[in-house]
Design a binder for these strands. Structure first.
Lengths: 187, 187, 187, 187
DNA sequence: CATGAATGAGCCTTCATTCAT
DNA sequence: CATGAATGAAGGCTCATTCAT
């Protein structure tokens, strides 16, 4: 991977944010350049195509996810880690109600494509989350940790989508509380 | 609402299908016209703007939903109706794994827009489903039927998104089975 | 000329009005059809092309002009006729301030065209007015009646254009008064 | 106002000329691009919409007018300035007979519009001419200089329109001579 | 003649990408 | 590496005109 110059870094962050807010299709290179305060013509020295910029946005989300899980792993109890994850989601309820889950909405958008392989890229980020959750469930000694992870992450994607579609952050709060209860109930 | 001529009907069906597969943004009027076997210029006789066509696609999904719930309502037991709903979802697992839930992905895409009011339109269709589910839970005499509906529909959206992102229809099967079990466990 | 059925008559009147208000280029066949309350597809039984409709608008203005001059000719004194003409112009000051002289603005628009011969058609209507005015000046025994007609009609076109461009009907009143004074001063 | 690059300047000149000849409505962006020898897509780098190009054409005419009045102001006598103005008009008789007064015909066309505000813009250019003429009449110590300006400019617009409608440059010569005589007669 | 529907050419505009300096 | 400018391929939409019934 190329050295992450300040400008490149700025472009990635801008891409992540703008694409989350506007969607990949409606986002123009100029939008991202403006948000990153980089001249349009210069963008292409860091990212050869628009798809690379979208991939960068995805990588940025991936990095955020890694940061989050690393922070959560400082908690000794896997159950607490999972509950911390849910609390983080609920903490971002306003953003979710406005623009949905950054990775989920992007994945949904990219999965409509036939070419470019970006769809698989989005799947990978989601898989990272799934695997991390699975690992926690496994450490708790629970059966079918992969199925539990699927249920947890699926619930997150579902509640984000509903909160977004209905423009109601309360949905995040409500379903978040239910998930916390569910996590506590697992033995 | 306008009388649905055969051609108009064909355009609506084509719009629903093509938009589901390609997304609203990547779908061109020409794509829909081709799928409906209608000359491009003629499309505008039935729908004045592209947005109207997207709204028509949404209406088509809404109609499908109504057809489905009407069919399910022939079942005497609300619990069976809900289980039938889940089975329908699982039955469409291949489509969901390829393109996601038609309404959910469209809602996610439209919610990125600032103008046009189509985002609210998508929310309405999802709300229809929520309300129908809520009604079934209510008839079962369960507490907080609205919360249960949220959980059910959220699970559907989540599993569709995961199945789509991971290109794995088995996710629909697996989570579907879990939902059936959950429905059976509710007292 | 074809027999003027009621519908054809309505289309001519509508064409004259709508073209005056919107200009020939911005006026669609549908606009005229709507104003005349005639189905779009039916228009072509009366006018084979849009140009024919514009020509019809011109003919309508020509007819209005003939009506006006015939009315004025009931006055015994040619000078009074000419003053009556000016008074008529001033009486239409609000329309002129909003849309200009129907014939003048149409002539200006059509004169930009290379083909179709409609430009010459517009010139003919203006020439009718010029010739009528010239005849009055001649009857007054004034020298160079054609030059006087040119001055009078030119003043009318100029004041209409200025009133229109500055959206000020007062210009019509002011210049009209001046023209009356001028007519009175001619010996 | 933006710095006028050579290409932008070329586009403005081309817009002024082509719009004068064809009218704003019949002029396509491609026409202007071709006349300026600029690729179509590139036009939008300088002018965001077609309306901006029309406004640029108007500004170009405004600039021409300013150049002319500045040149005329080198003459010591205001009356000579006004006569010089008329002579300039007569000098352009062939252009006027073919396409009318650039500003006047454009104003007439734009005044048919309801939106965009371009109509007011055209009015401003005409007002500039009126105000300059008024100033000259004022310096001559004549009463009602604004009325005199209206008469002069109105006569110009009228004779341009008639010359154009009748395709006869002689009208410019004839009416120009009359205006010269009129200017000389004012005391 | 009547009429809703059909057709296709053309226009404005956007934008990813490339180029010259 | 920087940057403003250039380029061309679409895409949405309008509309005069024609057609089928």
């Amino acid at each position: 991977m190329r050295a992450a110059s300040a400008k490149r870094q700025r472009l990635m962050a801008a891409a992540a944010q703008v694409v989350h807010q506007q969607g990949a299709e409606r986002t123009t290179i100029a939008d991202i350049a403006r948000a990153a305060d980089v001249p349009v013509g210069n963008v292409y020295y860091y990212f050869k195509t628009k798809d690379e910029l979208v991939a960068a946005a995805l990588a940025e989300h991936s990095r955020h996810l890694r940061d989050l899980t690393e922070r959560l792993e400082r908690l000794p109890d896997p159950r607490e880690r999972l509950k911390g994850l849910v609390e983080t989601w609920v903490g971002q309820r306003d953003l979710a109600a406005r623009y949905g889950c950054p990775t989920g909405t992007l994945a949904a958008e990219l999965d409509k494509r036939d070419e470019g392989g970006l769809d698989a890229e989005a799947g990978k980020v989601i898989r990272l989350l799934l695997e991390w959750a699975e690992q926690q469930f496994r450490e708790l000694g629970l059966p079918e940790p992969d199925g539990l992870a699927l249920t947890l992450v699926g619930a997150y994607q579902g509640m984000s989508l509903l909160a977004n579609a209905l423009r109601d952050p309360q949905i995040m709060t409500r379903e978040g509380a239910r998930l916390i209860g569910w996590l506590d109930s697992l033995v």
